[in-house]
Amino acid sequence: MVFKTVALFAKRKKPLRNCLKTGFRDSLKIFVSGGYGGNGLPKYGGIGGFGGNVSVIAKEGISLEDVFKQNKSLRYVAGNGGNSSANCLRGSPGENVTFEVPVGVSFITELGKKLGELDKENEELVLAKGGTPGHSKNGYLGTEGQAYPVKLDLKLIADIGLVGFPNAGKSSLLSAISHAKPKVANYPFTTLKPHLGMINFPDHRQISMADLPGLIEGAHSNKGMGHEFLKHVERTKLLLLVVDIHGFQLGPQYPYRNCLETVLLLNKELELYKPELIEKPSLLLINKMDVEDAEEKYNQIKLSLKNLSSISENYEEEIRSEKYLKFRDILPVSIKHSVQDIDLIKGKLRKHLDIIADEEIDDESNSDLYQDIRRKMKEKGPKLV
């Protein structure tokens, strides 16, 4: 009987999914409420004060965990507007509430409405507006402010997003080319939370890179780290896929995938999550080229890697896609054992990010030119025949 009581109240182990979140928070639910508008004064035509607003401002160097620690109630309620009185016909405005959040946060109501997102430092957004004051047109009665739960959803902003299955070498790459110190070991899911690193160049150029939790098959449907990983690649400028030349197998319940199948499967997971990701600029690193037979294996597949659509029909439907990444570069490397390869990767990343920046400028210039031509044609009006 004593044994049963002890067993009944024994502390249960936390499920793995909760453990994965330890130390990193990329979403948070809060409640926001604008203040009530103050009542007016009919006798003298007095007007109440506006209710206060709840706003956020983006700041570098803070996390959602910091937001939680600063206000564990997660309630943000602005002040009510003052009522009009004989001594003060204009009621005082309610006190605004403003708090800081990390750069890269989106704000979504429980009904799925997106209130906005903050992508740059010092950008501000009003989450809940205060109520309007009472005056002659509304019967001198102030209205209530907006009030609802809001989800804060953080998507990391980085120049480069590392994509690959567990143990492909992503963490080793980040450690080798930046000051980040991610945990590195020879077993799957070494990376349990995103790591950000900065690549520094002698001319003070900096490039940010995010190493994200390893995908598994079915990540698009929220298996494994699922959406917790995939949403973070959306804001990157360049995708860097890292695969093992000898293929990969997560566990006995999963099929073994050779190198080419691994690339096809990564493409599939990205497409199923968000088809637009396939249009992103991308590079491919074929890692562990220092291992025996690596060169022979690479020579057998290098032509196929340049045109994935041409060979996909040879594989089962579950790893075929409608569209395929078009790699701007394919680099066979040894991340762990070749300093020259690390320098090569750094140079290629910088080169392609510069090309992408130039392309963005050209696109903006062409768009502005097109709009200018349309405006001038509109000003001239139709020709009379």
Rank of each mutant, 00 (worst) to 15 (best):
4 K>P: 01
13 K>Q: 12
16 L>F: 10
16 L>T: 06
18 N>I: 01
19 C>G: 05
20 L>Q: 13
24 F>N: 11
25 R>N: 06
29 K>V: 13
35 G>A: 10
47 I>D: 04
48 G>D: 07
53 N>V: 04
60 E>L: 14
70 Q>S: 15
70 Q>Y: 05
73 S>I: 01
79 G>R: 13
84 S>N: 08
86 A>L: 14
88 C>A: 13
93 P>K: 14
94 G>M: 05
103 V>E: 03
107 F>A: 02
115 L>R: 00
119 D>A: 11
120 K>H: 11
125 L>K: 00
127 L>Q: 00
129 K>D: 08
131 G>Q: 04
131 G>K: 01
133 P>E: 03
137 K>Y: 10
139 G>N: 05
140 Y>L: 08
145 G>S: 00
145 G>N: 02
149 P>H: 00
152 L>N: 01
152 L>R: 06
153 D>T: 03
157 I>P: 00
158 A>T: 13
161 G>Q: 09
167 N>L: 05
168 A>H: 05
168 A>Y: 09
168 A>D: 04
171 S>M: 04
171 S>D: 02
177 I>H: 02
178 S>R: 06
178 S>I: 04
178 S>P: 05
184 V>D: 10
184 V>M: 05
186 N>F: 10
186 N>L: 10
189 F>E: 03
195 H>Y: 15
196 L>Y: 07
203 D>R: 09
208 S>N: 07
213 P>Q: 08
215 L>C: 09
218 G>V: 06
219 A>F: 03
225 M>V: 11
228 E>R: 15
229 F>A: 12
232 H>Q: 05
238 L>D: 03
240 L>C: 15
249 Q>N: 08
253 Q>I: 08
254 Y>F: 15
262 T>L: 03
262 T>H: 02
264 L>R: 04
265 L>A: 12
265 L>E: 13
270 L>E: 02
272 L>I: 01
275 P>L: 06
275 P>M: 08
278 I>Y: 05
283 L>C: 08
296 E>S: 11
307 N>A: 14
313 E>P: 00
314 N>C: 10
315 Y>E: 02
319 I>G: 11
322 E>T: 15
324 Y>E: 11
325 L>F: 09
327 F>L: 12
331 L>H: 03
333 V>P: 12
346 K>D: 08
355 I>P: 01
362 D>K: 14
367 S>F: 07
374 R>G: 06
381 G>F: 13
381 G>R: 08
384 L>I: 13
